[in-house]
Write a protein that binds this DNA or RNA. Structure first.
Lengths: 190, 190
DNA sequence: ACCTGAACACCGTTCAAGT
DNA sequence: ACCTGAACACCGTTCAAGT
């Protein structure tokens, strides 16, 4: 029966890292020092191998960034799916943005040319918003309502993280104002 | 009196390019081949010099990207300021995004780490939206209303350009739905 | 005063050679 | 089977040398 300390026989070399560790290291670098600092060398150093070894587990830097994006979208999905109130769901998305701004911007407003996550992941991340918007707006306008709500929420959070709200004022108040008015606006019976 | 063909005397060498030409070449490269293709070498080739010569006119690649962003924001400001109807202003912003998607994404949803335009340029670009939102919402809620409208518009257009609207449906209809509902929602007397 | 080739430090990526 | 050093082509940037 194999144990942790079992005899390894003629096994050449045990794995020194894993894909998960690589993606995690890449996420850390992204959040700490930005996308430019997410180099194959820096990732390799974090996981304790040399850069060429990474190519045994991931196709290249672009694919690694894509994996980071997909892992981020999964985290967002898990977080949003835990709630059913539209105000709370939107607020959870904003909280995520504040905790992991670089990851949020990577997946929610990828610049031109950044490797993009697979559709399934992007879909899952906003499933909650979609569902709740449908409930509010009725089947007739479910999709339009969902797009209005998600566009506003991602736009607002992105602008907040970008520092695009430079005119002072109370950003929290603007958020509350927006949430209230938009939910009201997409609700069918008013 | 100096003319175009005036005697140049002992002038060493006439300028072979200009900052404007450099920024224009960089904008073209961004739009055609993406931010990664906007290299100092590629820009230099377009304007007919070698890469090191660019440093006589611009501090480096990051600053050049920033200049492209600022020129883009000026273009957006000019375009939006030509109108006063909120629906039309929003629609002009969307039209710009479709004409120059890479430039739009660069300035409206810059990824983490991309060099960012000076506040004054960002401010000017959305001045029209701000003014019109103030008229709709009244002084009391002018800022919140402006932020709601701009967040929605930039969020929507970014998602459209990103291909984030993957669920089919009529995107134009979703736009019309959003514009109507949001303008209604931020208008004071309803 | 502007432009250039050469050089430097750094990328991502490939691959033969090690264990 | 995984890991590595060396190599390659490409970056951005600097600078002495040309005109």
């Amino acid at each position: 029966m194999a144990t942790v300390n079992s005899y390894t026989g003629t096994m050449p070399t045990p794995d020194r890292t894993s894909l998960d560790a690589i993606v995690l290291a890449a996420s850390d670098l992204l959040e700490t020092d930005g996308l430019a600092a997410l180099t194959m060398n820096a990732v390799a150093q974090r996981v304790g191998v040399r850069a060429p070894s990474l190519y045994k587990r991931v196709q290249g830097r672009d694919r690694l960034i894509q994996l980071v994006a997909e892992a981020t979208l999964t985290d967002i999905a898990d977080r949003l799916n835990a709630h059913s109130d539209p105000v709370r769901i939107a607020s959870q998305l904003r909280a995520f943005g504040k905790e992991r701004p670089a990851a949020f911007l990577l997946v929610m407003s990828p610049g031109a040319g950044t490797p993009v996550a697979d559709d399934a992941f992007r879909h899952a991340s906003v499933a909650s918003l979609l569902r709740v918007a449908g409930e509010l707006a009725g089947e007739q306008h479910a999709l339009e309502a969902a797009r209005t709500l998600t566009a506003w929420a991602t736009g607002f959070i992105s602008m907040e993280l970008n520092g695009s709200f430079q005119l002072g004022g109370d950003v929290d108040r603007a958020w509350d104002f927006g949430v209230t008015r938009i939910i009201d606006a997409i609700t069918v019976s008013r």
